[in-house]
Write a protein that binds this DNA or RNA. Sequence first.
DNA 1: ATACAAAGACAACGGGAGTTTCGTTTGTCT
DNA 2: AGACAAACGAAACTCCCGTTGTCTTTGTAT
Lengths: 207, 207
Amino acid sequence: MSHAPEGKPGTVRPGGRTARTRTDVLAATRAELTDTGLARMTVEKVAARAGVAKTTVYARWRDISGLIVDLLSELTVRTVPVPDTGSLEEDLRQLARSLLELFRSTEDLVMFEAIFATALHDREAREALSAFYAFRLDASAALVDRAAARGEVPPGTDRLEVIRTLSSAFYYRRFISGEPVTERDADRAAAVAAHSARAGLLVVPPA
Amino acid sequence: MSHAPEGKPGTVRPGGRTARTRTDVLAATRAELTDTGLARMTVEKVAARAGVAKTTVYARWRDISGLIVDLLSELTVRTVPVPDTGSLEEDLRQLARSLLELFRSTEDLVMFEAIFATALHDREAREALSAFYAFRLDASAALVDRAAARGEVPPGTDRLEVIRTLSSAFYYRRFISGEPVTERDADRAAAVAAHSARAGLLVVPPA
DNA sequence: ATACAAAGACAACGGGAGTTTCGTTTGTCT
DNA sequence: AGACAAACGAAACTCCCGTTGTCTTTGTAT
């Protein structure tokens, strides 16, 4: 199953050339992704653009899916800006707005689409994506903790579920039904999430 | 762009053989999809399984994406069961349960995954999928109309948005974050959608 | 029944993607 | 500084997918 002897590609010998190869190949992957697209992408062309032998890419990443997974692992590191305005609904609204912006950035969008497409058939990619969202959700949920401390939401409120309720509307429109996403949708999603949380609909199961 | 001279493949001459070929090929596509997967699927193997020359498939469907689109168009015809219990929240809960069941059926799930993956890079597939959801949403929204007639929701409530609010939670968990979906999630989604609708959060924009 | 065109079958071809082999470079350890 | 193995590069090779051209079958109109 796994191709690399160690966790991340090239960790055995993270010297100058190896590290440079990795960054070059990942950069080439991004570039090919944006102007060729995942469907018509090939390992050979990525290697050519990176100025690297294709055998190198095959040895370290195995295939396109491996490249995408590695790309995602880098994305996870980025810190998520979590708003803190003193109001749950306002925090959620701001979070929704940044999600909206993310989906309007062509560069990031292409990458998300590639990751989703890969995760649909590749197990490693699926796990990497789940881990990515587990991390993001947990980080964003800090604003729910603060709302709970202020007494804005009832005790027992599921901190992650509030963020899920907010996010799902965007992903659904953008990637499932294919409808456009507007500022109005962002504000409405924030209102729904905040209202539901305050009403105690998003509490953790009694176990 | 478009390959066939007419709208649907084989409408020029819908005689016995042509129709039989279509059903055989689509059946073979389903079969290949379930036990080979979209990623490793190829037109040649589909044709072989269907007992048809591969040139025939290439001529009528052009590529795998075309096959998937045609498969989706058949799925659209299926009528959606819309509950009518006399209560908005109960209707939504039942709708949520059937969605849950849909995502637990391995056969249907494989197909949805294939369609989503295809829609991410193929324009025709994207349009077909949007049309599919436009149809499904509109059909399901009938239960919102009845709730409105009963006065359960305020006037001006966006009938489609209620269904979207219900559905999005499922799709998000299942295809984006990759988390499991349970009965509890179904009931909670129904509660959120019903509560939000009653609170007037899902009204159409004033325009 | 006959004619005609559409749809399909068959065979051969071309090309490109992934694999294999082997030689070379380079990072690290002593 | 030298040894050793990891990482990379280059070329040849193989396989399979998609295309093309031609002939045959079949549905439909007259």
